[in-house]
Amino acid sequence: MKYPRTTKVIPLRQLPPGESAVIARVLGHPDHVHRLEEFGLRGGIKIEMFRAGNPCIVRLAGNKICLRADDLLHVLVEPIAA
């Protein structure tokens, strides 16, 4: 599915609550990235910020996932223009 995207890539923690974005990349230790991918958090997936902060809560296909990123793990997203 294609979403209208802005070209800007921002860290997930900068995504305001209620806004949607497409995950651009997950950066970090390969094992940790792998684990997030198994949870469904992977490139090309649309998410919506439910509760910002660290840990944050994101909505992913109607489900909610709580995630705490740290210095070693970065989720980069492309916000979807409203």
């Binding site: 970090g28 940790h32 840990p55 995630l67």
Partner: peptide
């Protein structure tokens, strides 16, 4: 090393 904290709600 602490793995990332991910949890389903």
């Amino acid at each position: 090393q602490t793995p990332p904290f991910v949890m389903e709600l």
